[in-house]
């Protein structure tokens, strides 16, 4: 029986195992994730040049399709595409035709008619990017920039790049993810990435109310208290407390949350002395993280942002490369079929 991981792999990879969409990390293997990180390393060097641009996607059109607001993700995708020399169209959905009643599929058909080569999609519904990838014209790459609570694979990969830069490899690493795991697509993708890349231990540090059901099935250890969970950690990933969750009575108050799960200098001292502190942003100072920690020597939060551009350049160029390979194979197959028909005639 085909599992979710199988179908996810099939949807994202060409017959030769090359990336053609980037939707979630489920079903992808270590070799491919490592290749994304290696390619991103090369793009980091490009970002340090006087002209930070390479001609890889020259003449290609990329559409940033954000159905949910985002500053960092959208702007780093835009910058990444521009550094690959692609033409970028940013679509503000709140002012677009979908608010006039056009369906998602119709919006996409119109954009495809403008000869777009790639869509970067952020959507409040889990599975939106997968839905579009199944539906889209062959040859067009779909990149998931966050769907509901499901996945945010480029964020997870930029976090992995940041970890690798600071720790060298994933072998023997103990990584803790702290806070609102339940509502976090970032956490889901991070857990998958860390397990695929071979981290020794992934811990979730959160109260019951902010944990997904059956967290152990995701390959993690659960610690309800910071004091135990932070012990010996090499990497601490803080999640943003989504303030809107407060209303759902999942938490007593922000102050209470900060007392129990906020990362202060005191609590940070429980982790490995060389531990790094990460946060996908935007950070709530004084809610999940103390300002002195966010700005402190162990924080790599701004590294994450820089790495975001390089990882997105890597994923976009690899997906385009896979799509082009598939287009060529299809053209060849068509040619062969035609020759056969002519031969028979």
């Amino acid at each position: 029986m085909a599992t979710m991981a199988d179908s996810n792999r099939q949807l994202q990879l060409t017959a030769d195992g090359e990336l053609k969409h980037f939707l979630s990390l489920e079903g992808l293997d270590r070799a491919l994730l490592t290749r994304i990180l290696d390619t991103a390393d090369s793009f980091i060097e490009v970002g340090e040049r006087s002209i930070k641009k390479v001609p890889l996607l020259r003449g290609r059109t990329l559409v940033n399709l954000f159905f949910e607001p985002s500053t960092r993700t959208r702007s780093t995708f835009e910058l990444a595409a521009k550094r690959l020399s692609a033409d970028v169209l940013n679509l503000d959905i709140s002012t677009s035709a979908t608010s006039k009643g056009e369906t998602l599929s119709d919006t996409l058909l119109n954009l495809e008619a403008m000869a777009s080569d790639m869509f970067v999609i952020r959507h409040a519904h889990s599975g939106a990017a997968h839905f579009i990838a199944r539906d889209v014209t062959p040859g067009v790459a779909i990149i998931n920039a966050g769907d509901g609570r499901h996945a945010h694979p480029t964020q997870a990969m930029l976090d992995m790049l940041t970890i690798r830069q600071h720790k060298g490899s994933f072998t023997g690493l103990k990584v803790g993810i702290v806070g609102d795991v339940q509502h976090s697509r970032v956490a889901r993708s991070q857990i998958q990435a860390l397990n695929i890349l071979g981290a020794e231990e992934v811990r979730l540090i959160a109260p019951d109310t902010l944990l997904p059901t059956e967290p152990e099935a995701m390959g993690v250890r659960v610690f309800p208290r910071m004091e135990q969970g932070l012990k010996d950690l090499d990497v601490i990933i803080m999640l943003r407390l989504q303030r809107e969750r407060m209303e759902g009575a999942l938490l007593p108050s922000e102050r209470e949350f900060y007392k129990l799960y906020g990362l202060t200098r005191e609590k940070l001292a429980l982790a490995h002395p060389k531990a790094i502190v990460m946060h996908p942003g935007p950070i709530n100072r004084g809610v999940e993280i103390e300002s002195e920690v966010a700005d402190g020597p162990q924080s790599v939060i701004l590294n994450q942002v820089t790495n975001g551009i390089a990882v997105r350049m890597a994923v976009m160029s690899m997906a385009m490369s896979g799509q082009l390979a598939e287009r060529q194979q299809q053209a060849k197959a068509q040619q062969k079929a035609q020759q056969k028909v002519q031969g028979n005639g």
Binding site: R35, D38, S317, L324
Partner: peptide, 29 residues
């Protein structure tokens, strides 16, 4: 110099899977 990002046959052969960072440890200007 690793010229993988500058090749003119990207649409035919795709991205070199073994690309590594170029390294110019000086200003060329």
């Amino acid at each position: 110099l690793d010229i993988s990002f500058y090749r003119d046959d990207f649409s035919r052969v795709g991205l070199n899977p073994r690309v590594r960072p170029s390294h110019l440890p000086f200003a060329t200007e």
